[in-house]
Design a binder for these strands. Structure first.
Lengths: 122, 122
DNA sequence: CTGCATCCTACGGGATACTG
DNA sequence: CAGTATCCCGTAGGATGCAG
């Protein structure tokens, strides 16, 4: 399988792998099951309501999560991963695993790179 | 393995999975081996020089690619994947594969979602 | 050929206030 | 409780011109 092709296609495909700041955080939060809006909000630290709403909306739109609203007072909305969402979760885990394994190496590489103040003729 | 934890930690980890617009495009371009600057540029479509430079610099800094400059006239610079870069390439392939498999499904989900103009009480 | 410097615009995303 | 509306700002990133 080769990715290289028309740049438009490449860009298009790669768009899928440039999630917004909070998308994958939501995905991993829903790992253990159903969650409500403010429940997510609390568990995700300082995420603004606007960002969370937008993220949830887009995830629902793309079919990664479901949204179930109950017409009670007070209102109550539950979010869940779909099958597709669980696949995305698997990918997120892969990335996280990768990041965990190589965090030190990358930090070290950065320090080395930054230490070379004599970087001539770029 | 659980991702959930302090939000700061989660954010930090997830930073690694929010590459810039061109990072993964470069990575997949280097799949087949060494490439020069303008060679990359041509194969990547309309990428501005600035963006490509920045991307290459950061990838080098983090240890994903190597940069070899030859002091010839005209100058010549070659880029290559490191071992770490190849691991990143593997992840990129996973994402691409995922995107390929589910492109239709996501498009369909979007159409369905957008078709519901009666979405009350969000 | 391989970059850097500059300018400019669009957009993500945070803070705050308000609503059903 | 679960959002929307508005404002504001930093930064990504595109276009252009210049340099070694």
């Amino acid at each position: 399988m080769s990715i290289s092709g028309a740049e438009a296609e490449a860009s298009h495909e790669l768009l899928v792998i440039r999630p917004s700041k909070w998308t994958l955080v939501v995905i991993v939060q829903l790992r253990s099951g159903t969650m409500r809006f403010n429940e997510l909000r609390r568990n995700m630290g300082g995420v603004p309501q606007k960002s969370l709403s937008q993220t949830l909306r887009e995830l629902e739109r793309d079919g990664y999560i479901t949204r179930t609203a109950y017409a009670t007072i007070p209102p109550r909305v539950e979010y869940d991963l779909t099958e597709l969402g669980r696949e995305l979760l698997a990918l997120a885990d892969d990335w996280h695993s990768f990041a965990q394994r190589n965090r030190r190496a990358v930090e070290q590489a950065r320090r080395l790179f930054d230490a070379v103040d004599e970087r001539p003729a770029y």
